[in-house]
Amino acid sequence: MRTFVHSLPPELQAATLVLLGLAGAFGLYQTWRLLDNIAWIRAAATARARSASQGYVELSGQAQPIPGPPIIAPLSRRDCLWYEFVTSGFARDVFSLIPREHGRSESIFHLEDCSGRCIIDPDGAQVFAEHRETWFGDTQHPEMRSFGWKLEWMGWLHRHMQYREQRIEAGDRLYVLGEFESLHEDNHNTLTSETSAILAAWKTNPIRMRQIDTNSDGHIDADEWEAAREEALNRAALKLHAEGELQPLHILRKPKNPRQPFIIAAFTEDELLRRLGWRTVFHALLFIGATGAIVLLTTSVTI
């Protein structure tokens, strides 16, 4: 290899060294980023959706849809909860793949564990999906679904478009690490409507209205009505608590601290750590290999 590089024109020799330098820097950066992600994952204990504390938490459960219109993956046309796709054109003249289109779902979905539910907002997440497919065709968008990777990779020989898609589907195992927040807006609405219902019932009940009219002057003044409203509010809260309807709305999203990774994976924590570990090894080897190659070449190449 040293002889081969030595035989190249000086500009190409320099370009080779720049490329190796970039590969080494990329390998080193990725090694550190992946090791840091692994450290965050290993340091987090799995919380429960019902009782997780506010802030950076790890949850584990099952992916479930949120009621509403279905989310359809644009390439495979499959029903899913989250998708990401890339279509690339294969340019034969320069033997490279040219990115043409890229899309990513930002629709929310549920994580359900043994204790409750949490809304997952995937915007800005590193996603490791279970369903990943690559297939080929001749049109900008695929006309048919994948047949499975073995057959489809043969399409690479005579088709010029490549389609790649990854999806999270309903029922997939789900691991998430991100910023957890509990919202109480729904509670407020539920409580207000329940309070209104109680007050409306009282208005039609003359005995109750006489009780509210504490000074018995035949009119409900502002203070009396305020006292009645408070009592109705307390009754509504008690009723909703007893019925288990006063549940906060939990949401997990991208952390405000940019150093904390936001991860969504359709794997168990152990499986995710194993995959990240192998990626780390690959990038560390890339860094060491690129450094070695630069050293090997610079000892003989003169630019």
């Binding site: 090694t31 090791l35 840091d36 692994i38 450290a39 290993r42 340091a43």
Partner: peptide
């Protein structure tokens, strides 16, 4: 690379 690995282990313990 080994030093980076050591730092990541240390960081994980601090976070824990």
């Amino acid at each position: 690379v080994i030093a980076l690995y050591g730092i990541s282990l240390y960081n994980a313990l601090v976070r824990l």
